[in-house]
Amino acid sequence: MGKNYFTEEQVAELNLNSNVQKVSTKAITYTEAFRQWFYQEYQGGKMPSIIFQEAGFDTNVLGKQRIQNFSKRTKNMAQR
């Protein structure tokens, strides 16, 4: 299975989201404020995909794997 790269149109759309620090065709970096908010919502029992949708992201563009990986990384960072 190959990598899920963003198209140029998707990069432009993601750049419009205030929760995005930077984005390229290969990767996306979220703001620290979004990471903290995500973790609070996640601890409150919300599903990661719902949190991303509420933050204005198209979860189909991000993909299930990116959302799951972000959730794991955020959880691990908070436990440190």
Rank of each mutant, 00 (worst) to 15 (best):
K75Q: 04
Q40F: 10
V23S: 12
T7N: 05
Q36W: 00
A12M: 02
T31H: 01
Y5G: 01
Q65V: 13
K46Q: 14
Y42Q: 01
Q40S: 07
G2A: 11
P48S: 09
G56F: 15
E9G: 07
E8P: 08
K64G: 00
K3G: 05
D58S: 08
E9M: 04
G45S: 11
E54G: 11
V20G: 07
F34R: 00
R35C: 12
I67W: 00
E54M: 13
E54Y: 12
E8K: 14
P48V: 06
V23Q: 08
F70P: 02
T25Y: 01
K64I: 01
G44D: 09
E32D: 02
R73K: 10
P48F: 07
R80L: 09
Q40E: 13
E54P: 01
K72R: 14
G44N: 12
Q53E: 13
T7W: 03
A78E: 09
G56W: 11
Q43D: 02
T7V: 05
K46I: 07
Q53V: 03
Q43S: 10
Q40W: 02
K46P: 01
M1F: 11
W37N: 08
N69S: 15
R80N: 06
I51L: 07
W37K: 12
F52N: 03
M47R: 14
Q10G: 03
Y42G: 04
K46Y: 13
Y39A: 00
F57L: 02
F57Y: 04
S18R: 05
Q68P: 00
V20S: 02
M47G: 08
Q21R: 14
A55F: 09
R35Q: 06
G45Q: 08
E8Q: 15
V61S: 05
K64Q: 06
Q68C: 09
Y5S: 11
V23N: 04
G45N: 02
A27Q: 14
V20I: 14
K3A: 07
M1I: 04
Q40G: 08
F38T: 00
S71L: 08
N76P: 02
E54H: 15
Q68L: 13
L16K: 15
Y30S: 01
Y30T: 09
P48L: 08
N4L: 08
K72E: 10
A12Y: 01
E13T: 06
V20N: 03
T29I: 14
N69E: 14
S18C: 01
F38L: 00
Q36I: 01
G45C: 03
A78K: 15
K46R: 14
F6Q: 03
Q21N: 10
N76A: 15
Q43H: 09
Y42V: 07
I67Q: 03
S49K: 08
E32K: 10
S49V: 05
I50C: 07
K22M: 03
M47P: 05
